[in-house]
């Protein structure tokens, strides 16, 4: 009996996946599926939260009041998306504290792109345009992911993110059509952010550690390389409209493939940054820890106040 039951459950689970049915929080699921989801979803959530920092670096220096309001609203959205995703991850039975601890101790990863510095105002534009643009390509595919709460969070996030990319492109457009200095600022930011944006899709399919299992379970719906190509194809025309030089000299249209060819990504850099040796890894985690630690007395006050309230309620109930 004990040996048959799990097998039966597993078969039922596999059938659901096959039938394109969503897996919901209280359903039985293989432990590895749960773990894989927690890994991917928390990584996604952490990316939203850590992603607040590079752009946040420019909130107090935004050049106009409108830009400032837009940027503030955008970063607030990132916080919101982090929250949707934490909330979805919590349905898998891990707590927010555990997730935060995993982030701060380096057990959980976040998108490497945020380990690069946002140096100039153009970085805010390039980030919205390219980083959010790449994220959207990923997330659109993930709206069909097999875990219900994750898929629903993605639908919400995609709906909200389209403005993120547009506001970024708008900034780039203003710069690219502005003074020579501004245009140079835009070109420089794009050149720096282009490659890390391509890295956001992960290693080549052949080298991706988690990919095949994730595809089988329909956690991931499309491969890294497929999505990366899609992003490149849709972005090149946008670069042309800006009138900027291509960030990669090897970019050219391949008629036979019906896609743009491009140069090879520097994978050594990719792994180096992932493994903690990027320009801002330490800074980002330190910032997160500091904010979290500084909030500790607030959370402690909340806990204490609550206990007092409960005690008061209990004693009045007894009366």
């Amino acid at each position: 009996m004990q040996t048959v039951e799990p097998l039966l459950q597993e078969a039922e689970f596999d059938q659901k996946i096959l039938d394109e049915q969503k897996i919901e929080p209280r359903d039985w699921m293989p432990e590895a599926y749960r773990k894989n989801l927690i890994r991917q979803m928390s990584q996604h959530a952490h990316s939203e939260v850590i992603g607040m920092q590079p752009e946040g670096n420019w909130i107090t220096r935004a050049p106009t009041l409108r830009r400032k309001a837009v940027l503030l609203a955008k970063i607030q959205d990132e916080a919101g998306h982090g929250l949707y995703l934490y909330s979805a991850t919590e349905t898998l039975g891990c707590t927010r504290s555990e997730l935060i601890e995993a982030l701060q101790t380096g057990k959980a990863k976040y998108a490497s792109i945020f380990n690069y510095p946002a140096l100039t105002w153009a970085d805010v534009g390039a980030t919205g345009w390219l980083v959010d643009g790449a994220a959207i390509v990923n997330q659109i595919a993930l709206q069909r992911t097999s875990y219900g709460p994750y898929a629903r969070a993605m639908v919400r996030i995609c709906k909200e993110e389209s403005f993120h990319q547009r506001q970024g492109y708008e900034i780039m457009f203003a710069l690219a059509k502005g003074s020579p200095q501004q245009k140079q600022m835009a070109q420089d930011a794009m050149n720096r952010i282009w490659w890390p944006s391509l890295m956001m899709f992960g290693p080549h399919d052949a080298d991706s550690a988690h990919s095949s299992q994730s595809m089988k379970w329909k956690i991931k719906r499309q491969s890294n390389d497929f999505l990366r190509q899609k992003f490149i194809d849709q972005t090149i025309p946008q670069i042309k409209v800006l009138g900027l030089d291509m960030p990669d000299p090897e970019i050219r249209w391949n008629k036979k493939r019906g896609h743009y060819d491009h140069g090879e990504i520097n994978w050594d850099e990719f792994y180096q940054v992932i493994n903690g040796q990027g320009p801002c890894n330490h800074q980002r985690i330190k910032h997160h820890k500091r904010a979290h630690d500084e909030g500790e007395w607030v959370r402690e006050a909340v806990r204490n106040y609550r206990e007092k309230q409960n005690r008061r309620e209990n004693s009045t109930m007894k009366k």
Partner: peptide, 14 residues
Amino acid sequence: SEWCSNGPYLEEDI
């Protein structure tokens, strides 16, 4: 606005 990404927890940050 200086509180953005510095709140005691995410809900309060937002």
